[in-house]
C-alpha cells in the first residue's frame, strides 16, 4: 500500500486511536513507522502516555515506531520569524515598519494555521526517508479537506502570479530608454525565484497526495457521523483523492444471551440500531469497511492499543514513494 496514510473523520470519532493503532500494527510487522499528529489537541501524547514534540522521537515500548506532534502555532511563528530575519537583511529601516504590518496581518489570517500545518505535512513527506510508512492523524474533517485542496488551488494561483510578474518586468525592460538601467530585470529576479520554489513545492505536494497517499475515514455508528462521512467521501473524490477504507469505531458490545436486566435491554437495542447503520455503511458507501471496533471500557492505551491494532484489516506493507 501507499507509504503515506491519512486518517480523518469528524471530531471525537477516534482518529488518534485508529492512527496510533495502525502505527503500532505496522511497527509490529517490522515496518519503520512514524505517526504524525496534526491535531492541536495533541492526543498522540495521551495515547502513548509520553510527551512528543517537534522532532520525531521513538515511542517507548514499541520497536520501529516514532511519533511527532506538529504545533501549528509554533509553525506560524517560525515562518514569521524567518521572513523577519530576511526582511531586516534586505529592506531599509524606513520600509521595515510598513512591511512588518503587512507581514503580521498575513500571519493572522484564518488560513495561516492551515498553511503552516500543510507546509510541515509536506516537509515530513518530502523527508520521510528513514521511514517506510508515515501515518497522519489529521484534524477534523472540514479543515483537513480544505488543507488537501490547497495544492491545486495554490498551484494555479502561483502560476498566475508568475505570469503577472513576468509581464511587468518585461514591460519595465522595454521601457528603459537607450542605456538606462531598467527598473526591474528578469534575470535572477528574486521574486520569480521564490515563486518558482513555491510552485515546485505545491506540485510535489499535489503529486504525493494523489499518488502516494491512502485516505481512511473513521466514523461512529450515529447518523451525524455517517452523514459527514458521506460528504467527506464525495469531497475527497472531488479532489481526486480516493478513500481507501472506512473504520467504524465505538460500537456498542452486545450483552450475553441470558442477561435481561435494564442495562442488557438497553445494550441490545443499541446494538440493533448500530447494526442497521453499519449495514448502511457497508451497502451504500463506496469504500470498504476495514474494521469494526467495539467501545472499550477504558482509554485505549498500552495493550488495548495492540488489541485494536489486531482488529484493523489494513495492509501494513509499505511501497516506497513513487512521486519524488
Amino acid at each position: 500500500m501507499e507509504p503515506f496514510v491519512f486518517v480523518g473523520g469528524k471530531g471525537g470519532v477516534g482518529k488518534t486511536t485508529v492512527s496510533c493503532a495502525y502505527g503500532v500494527k505496522c511497527a509490529n510487522a517490522g515496518v519503520d513507522t512514524l505517526v504524525v499528529s496534526t491535531d492541536p489537541a495533541h492526543s498522540v501524547s495521551d495515547v502513548f502516555d509520553q510527551q512528543f514534540g517537534d522532532v520525531p522521537e521513538s515511542v517507548a515500548g514499541v520497536d520501529n515506531l516514532d511519533a511527532l506532534e506538529i504545533d501549528p502555532e509554533e509553525e506560524v511563528t517560525a515562518h514569521l520569524d524567518d521572513i523577519r530575519r530576511r526582511l531586516s537583511d534586505q529592506v531599509s529601516a524606513a520600509m521595515v515598519n510598513e512591511i512588518n504590518q503587512q507581514l503580521e496581518m498575513a500571519h493572522q489570517t484564518p488560513g495561516a494555521y492551515e498553511s503552516a500545518l500543510f507546509d510541515r505535512f509536506v516537509d515530513v513527506m518530502r523527508n520521510s526517508d528513514p521511514y517506510d510508512r508515515v501515518v497522519f492523524d489529521t484534524a477534523p474533517t472540514g479543515s483537513t479537506l480544505r488543507l488537501l485542496a490547497l495544492p491545486e488551488f495554490m498551484e494555479g494561483w502561483v502560476n498566475r502570479l508568475m505570469h503577472k510578474r513576468e509581464q511587468s518586468i518585461d514591460l519595465f525592460e522595454k521601457a528603459a530608454i537607450g542605456n538606462a538601467e531598467p527598473r526591474r530585470v528578469m534575470d535572477g529576479d528574486p521574486v520569480l525565484e521564490r515563486l518558482q520554489e513555491r510552485k515546485e513545492f505545491f506540485e510535489y505536494a499535489g503529486g504525493a497526495l494523489r499518488n502516494d497517499a491512502a485516505f481512511f475515514l473513521v466514523l461512529n455508528p450515529d447518523t451525524l457521523s455517517l452523514n459527514e462521512t458521506e460528504r467527506a467521501i464525495a469531497d475527497l473524490e472531488g479532489e481526486d483523492l480516493g478513500v481507501r477504507g472506512l473504520v467504524a469505531n465505538k460500537l456498542a458490545p452486545s450483552p450475553d444471551e441470558d442477561e435481561n436486566g435494564r442495562g442488557a435491554r438497553y445494550l441490545r437495542d443499541r446494538v440493533e440500531t448500530e447494526r442497521e447503520r453499519v449495514e448502511r455503511v457497508r451497502e451504500t458507501f463506496d469504500p470498504p469497511l476495514v474494521a469494526e471496533i467495539e467501545f472499550r471500557t477504558r482509554e485505549v492505551q498500552g495493550d488495548l492499543l495492540e488489541d485494536v491494532a489486531g482488529e484493523l484489516d489494513v495492509e501494513v506493507r509499505a511501497e516506497p514513494p513513487t512521486f519524488v
Binding site: 531599509s92 512591511i99 507581514l103 498575513a106 495554490m154 513555491r198
Partner: peptide, 19 residues
C-alpha cells in the same frame, strides 16, 4: 481574506521598492 497571503508574505523582503 485569502490563503495566498501567508505564502506571498515570503516575497515581502524582496519587493521593498514595488511595495
Amino acid at each position: 481574506p485569502s490563503p495566498v497571503s501567508y505564502y506571498t508574505a515570503e516575497l515581502l523582503p524582496y519587493i521593498e521598492d514595488e511595495f
